[in-house]
Write a protein that binds this DNA or RNA. Sequence first.
DNA 1: AGGTATTCACATGAAACTATTCTCTGAGTTAGG
DNA 2: TAACTCAGAGAATAGTTTCATGTGAATACCTGT
Length: 400
Amino acid sequence: MQELVNIFEAYLSKSTRIFSNKEALTSKFTPGKILHREEEITALAQILSPSLKMEKPSNVFIYGKSGTGKTLVTTFVCNQLENFSKKKGKGVKVLYTNCKMRKVADTEYRLIASLCRKLGRNLPATGLPTYEIYKNFFELLDREERIYILILDEIDRLVKKCGDEVLYNLVRVNSELKKAKVSIVGISNDITFKTRLDSRVLSSLGEEEIIFPPYDAIQLTEILSERAKIAFREGVLEEGVIQKCAAYAAREHGDARRALELLRIAGEIAEREGSLKVLERHVDLANEKMEREAVIEVVKKQPLQSKILLFSLIKSNRKKQKVYSGDLYDEYVNFCKMIGIKPLTQRRVSDLLNEFDVLGLINNKVISLGRYGRTREINLSIPQNLVEEVEKILKVGLGI
DNA sequence: AGGTATTCACATGAAACTATTCTCTGAGTTAGG
DNA sequence: TAACTCAGAGAATAGTTTCATGTGAATACCTGT
């Protein structure tokens, strides 16, 4: 017991040398003031404020790439709204759901069930018909006179997976309810997402639109500095560290989340090294680490068939730079036969390749070779220095 | 030469199928009165 | 008779197959000069 306390004490005192409040660098943290989003904040607040008079606000669509502050701004505004309404004795209630969360809210059934859960009723994860879930949901909503604001984060994922039926139902809920009213704030990374929607849904859901532009390097620097003031002890950041983080992130469409993470990891590396300062060198290391982990973790998590496919892909890539889907499929089938596993169809492999593309492991380009058909040109986008490590992981995963 | 048609080798889309996980229901069984 | 058990029916879901349709441009095939 005694010794453990010492260990913990040592850890505590050590960890405070660099950080004073590491939380401030995570996406959970809501800063006191949100920089460079004044316009968006007022726009959203104006759109939603009719709720304070118990009128249903317009539905809103919010677009912007990842790390542009969509979620932050939305939750900020909605929290303020909820608090204000509570003070004034009005019944505005905000329900936030992230539609991407696997096994939580990524299908029609699960989304509605998770909303019910937020309203205080637990429903089974499966087994009930969907209409039953809706019935529960309506019942819960209509208990009292209220304005509900549903925030559906990463709504594009939901639609991609399950179609827009859910949205259609949600848009219509107001006609089913007697006391309560519901308006929807949809947040999406994908601007083209609109085109996949049914026109009825679109016209109702897209009543208002707010677009979040990416941050530029200067804005990122300011955001980082502000957070760093809270997160780090004074004077531990070397000149140029923040600029460097901002520059790395600006290269990636101005993703503030990434910039913050980079800064945090740089700090952690410095800390582990026992350094008293975070140096620019640490940022480079952090960037390397992030890139590496992005690849390695993804590869590890792949199911068997995907691993086989990826392995075949690396092998083909060794032989020649340009890999075409047809050749890859042959290679893959051969390899499956070799290790005695039933190969998937070409159709499925095609989808898996698309998934790899989304994960950033490869780069697909559909090209036409005229008379010689149409195919996909596949480029491995795993950095050279990681390919070997990836291969090793795959070999272990496949038992060879 | 210039224009149209064909053709290849896949891509892409939609639907259906399989296996798994979960709930609900109701018949049959058991234990207690 | 009330409580319990357990099989079977019905749902949702992930992962896949089957069937159908789409596609871009190099080549083949015309046509008229």
